[in-house]
Nucleic acid binder design. Structure first.
Lengths: 204, 204, 204, 204
DNA sequence: CATGAATGAGCGTTCATTCAT
DNA sequence: CATGAATGAACGCTCATTCAT
């Protein structure tokens, strides 16, 4: 589309995006019809197609906007910190806060991975995140801060722990993101057998 | 249903389950129609509704059978080993092998979590797996084998690392499950900062 | 589709073809909806898509079947007659009879010429008819039976006279096709200024 | 409507008519949306409904203007010539020139004949043209210039030859209208068997 | 057991038209 | 005069499900 929108139009578009995000996350992408979306906002069907090319296009917009925002939040959080381990920690904490306020995105991304037409887009976003993390892990390994190993695998593991605890603890149980971030970092830094597990520095 | 089936019927049912699993995993649950399934097997529509009450029923059967099988494989692997840490390791290795031969199930479970009508079933299965793991972690903490902490969170983290590396390394990159299992255990046992990271016993 | 049809299926398909032909001819292709077609036959929407891939496909089937049949009728009429002028006359008479019993096709072909997605198909059919006629004209010129000239243009003119009188006299005024065929032949053979206009042999 | 328009308004209206004529002829009446028309001219939707009551109204305007213009061109061409055969020839030549510069109208008229809501208007215009021609033919027959016969049928045949050769030779092959007019007249005056076919007077 | 024709609610999408600005 | 957001009926089409054979 790329239509230029008036402020009022911009707001309408935002309403559609927000409402669709909530419905897709709650009810699923396929079971949520365009009719349900416009009825929920009390507008005509045409409005939807004034702002989006298709239902699929809307979904991709949601996905892309989410990925963009999360990445921005992480970069902002890391600021000009230079130590790779500290950078990772800052990114993890920022991500956790972000998920707490964007719970719907989580399930949308999971769904997107399961359907051919969306999967490639998601994977591209994940490759970026993985590469960001891998680079930090590699730097830390090179500097001797952490033990040598397969940086990609380690990065993936860290992202996995963050992701699963965000889902189950923050989104599922509603626990405070800073607390869960502590647990992610504790687990990732020391593992199960680490001597001083539980005695890591607290940040937030 | 719960119909009594002839051996031939049992085989037909199995063919439908297998083909549907593959199509759902490749193409998505919703985009795959019942017509596509029966056409793919060269049978009439009636066959489908003879063996399954509905498309949804078929999907739940696939899910349930998968969870049942994975759990059985894990229990078998742990055998009569009594050390909780060793039991976890055996379960992780067994799971990794199983995922390598049941790659379709992974995406199906991810999808199921995203839709209201399936999510509750999946979560029930996951609660069982989590509780199994949590119990082992708690035992290990009680015996002093691993540092104290929130057993549920730690169990979730271990499952998360297993899951994400199964997906990305075994299913995504096709690496040998035993090798990836080593990496899961290494990371979970020692974390990033563990002194002897990378020097753990190799098994397979 | 190319589905194998039972006799009952074949009949249903025929009903759809016939009813659609009538509706398209009377009301126009676009103004006639698939819903109108199935409602008119008292069947469900799905029936339509069981027999045809799309509304466009149905229309093309009607067109192709008509062209095929007309061509066959012309070839049959010419039989083993060898004189080119006599062959043309036989073909004209046969065509006129055919149009009298297939009036709907006329307007459908005219419509098809006006829309990009159908025009190429129609033009292909018309090229065949033109080439058939042109060949006969050329033969007649070569044998000295008719005056030399541009055979393509002459063939086109003969087809044009046949076509316009079929439309206005046979379809429009309901006059007997054999009588109109006489007039076509009279005009084409002698023109306005031909001395003996109106004194040609009568056939039917 | 029948609104009084400013010179600027008159130009806008003309632009809409010209662009719509081109799009309808190229793409078809139904497949061409009002949105496409206004987008193509870079104006808003309101402009369209300021100048035309509806899409159908616009189409009828195009048709009526075309018929009006063609009739005027023919009358002008015939001037004060009194011989009916000469008048017909002049009208045919003028028509051919006009079609060459108004090719879009041809397909629009063909389309209009195929849809109930437009057909009656077209037929009215054609009745006028036929009656004009029939009168000339009748006069020629009465004066003995051409052989007796059904004047209506002969007139229709002449119009049919003009029409089909305009379409195929002038519009389709891009041949010069004056040359094609020669062929129309040659064929209509002498037919296939006329002794002196091809030796008619040349005009242009 | 099995077929495949049939159903019809519901889908995503279009588009002629209106009207507040 | 002109814009473009909004409407909503209608469209072509899909598909889970049923059932006569």
């Amino acid at each position: 589309m790329g239509r230029r929108l008036t402020p009022r139009g911009e707001q309408r578009r935002g309403e559609l995006l927000a409402y669709a995000t909530e419905r897709f996350a709650t009810n699923g992408y396929h079971p949520t019809s365009v009719a349900e979306l416009v009825d929920g906002l009390g507008v005509g069907k045409g409005v939807f197609y004034w702002y989006f090319e298709s239902k699929e296009d809307l979904f991709l917009e949601i996905l892309r906007a989410g990925e963009r925002e999360l990445r921005r939040v992480q970069l902002d959080a890391m600021g000009d910190e230079t130590d790779p381990v500290a950078r990772m920690e800052l990114a993890i904490r920022a991500s956790m806060e972000w998920w707490a306020t964007h719970r719907e995105l989580y399930v949308l991304i999971e769904f997107a991975r399961t359907e051919a037409s969306f999967a490639s887009g998601v994977r591209k976003g994940e490759r970026v995140a993985l590469e960001d993390t891998r680079r930090l892990v590699q730097e830390a390994m090179d500097s001797g801060a952490i033990a040598d190993g397969n940086a990609t695998v380690v990065a993936q593991a860290v992202l996995g722990v963050s992701s699963v605890l965000a889902r189950t603890q923050v989104l599922g149980r509603g626990r405070p993101p800073s607390e869960v971030a502590d647990e992610v970092i504790d687990f990732c830094w020391h593992g199960l057998l680490g001597r001083d597990a539980g005695q890591t520095r607290r940040t937030a």
